[in-house]
Simulated scan of single mutants.
Amino acid sequence: MDLKAVNAENAVAYKVQLTTSPQNVEAGKPTQLTLAVKQNEKIVPLDISHEMKLHLMVVSEDLNWFRHVHPEEQKDGAYAMMETFPTGGKYLLFSDFKPSGGEQTLNKQEIEVGGKISPVNNDISTKYTSKVDGFTLTLLNGSDFKTNKTQHLEISIEKDGKKLIEKDLQQYLGASAHIVMIGKVGKEFLHIHPVSDSRFPVFAQTKIEKAGVYRMWAQFKIEGKVHTADFTVDVTEGKKGENEEKSHAHHPVFTPRQQ
């Protein structure tokens, strides 16, 4: 499935209108976010994609706060949800949707949140192990991420000394897990849905276009609860044509020239 970024070539086709209530968003206070996908000023119906009609990823500009949510469809065809932002500052909203009769599309917007701004965290240290809710996740090949090839994402999960296998996980959004990668500098975006692999409970393939530091969030579901682990990887430049296997990520991703 291809994901088409909204840029100069296709921005006219689909416009995502974002409104907030209250209009001035403040940290620590609930805010209603409403998104309406429009074409020629009319709301466009959306198809179900990976079990939902609209996927919304909300992240702080420094990529240290992440939320993946699914706004509820309203009677007028728009989608709404409540969110409380932890601190003031800039946040990015990536919405992923498939208009009926159209292609899978990615839209990126920014929102300014009032209130006390936390010091910017410029720590770009790599992070291959993440502990969440008693689970330990390890990105086993985290030091081997390169551009210009089909990149494997190999993640192990342990709890109480036991290594989990894929059947220990419940399906989440039509796959064994859900993965998002966002570039720290250019905010390149990859939306990845893992495939089955007998060696790792979470295994995926993607192709990363630009080198640099990326933040990654891997979400998995066990006993009805979704857990979110985070990693940081440094993607280096790979040799062109090194590997051309089919990947399982949406492309193209956001790059500076598309914003």
Rank of each mutant, 00 (worst) to 15 (best):
I155N: 11
L153Y: 08
K149A: 14
T138F: 03
K131W: 08
V132A: 05
F135V: 01
S143A: 15
K146R: 14
H152W: 14
S156A: 14
T147H: 03
T150F: 12
H152Y: 09
H152A: 14
K159M: 13
L153N: 00
G142D: 04
N141D: 03
K131R: 13
I157R: 01
E154I: 06
K149D: 12
T147C: 00
L140V: 15
I157W: 00
G134Q: 04
V132D: 03
S156T: 15
S143E: 14
N148R: 10
K131F: 13
T150H: 11
K159T: 14
S143G: 14
K131G: 05
L137S: 01
G134W: 02
S130W: 01
I155K: 07
N141P: 04
Q151L: 00
S130Q: 05
L140Q: 15
K131N: 15
L140I: 14
I155C: 10
S143R: 13
K131Q: 14
S130H: 05
D133K: 04
K149G: 10
S143K: 12
Q151M: 03
N141G: 01
T150S: 15
K149F: 10
G161M: 04
L139K: 00
N141W: 01
D160P: 07
S130A: 08
D144W: 12
H152N: 15
H152C: 10
T136V: 13
T136A: 07
N141S: 04
I155E: 09
F135A: 03
K131E: 15
L139I: 00
T150P: 08
H152S: 12
S130F: 09
S143T: 07
N148T: 08
K131T: 15
G134M: 00
T150D: 11
N141L: 02
L140W: 13
D144L: 12
T136I: 11
H152E: 13
V132G: 03
T147R: 02
V132K: 01
T147Y: 01
I157P: 01
I157H: 02
T138A: 10
T138W: 01
I157M: 03
I155M: 08
T150K: 13
T138L: 00
L139Q: 00
D133A: 04
L139F: 09
L137E: 00
E154Y: 06
K146Q: 14
V132W: 02
K146S: 10
I155G: 13
N148H: 10
E154V: 06
I157G: 00
L140H: 13
D160Y: 03
T136Y: 02
S156H: 05
E154G: 07
S156K: 05
S156P: 10
Q151N: 02
S130E: 04
E154P: 07
D133N: 09
N148L: 02
F145A: 12
D160M: 04
E158D: 10
T129C: 06
G134I: 02
S143D: 15
S130N: 06
K149P: 09
L139P: 05
K149I: 11
K149C: 05
N148E: 08
K146D: 11
D160S: 07
F135Y: 06
S156M: 09
S143W: 08
K146W: 14
T150Q: 13
N148S: 12
D133H: 05
S143Q: 15
L140R: 11
E158M: 13
L153E: 06
G142Q: 04
T136H: 05
Q151V: 05
S143C: 09
E158A: 10
F145C: 05
Q151T: 09
S130R: 03
K159F: 11
S130P: 10
G134S: 03
F135G: 01
F145E: 03
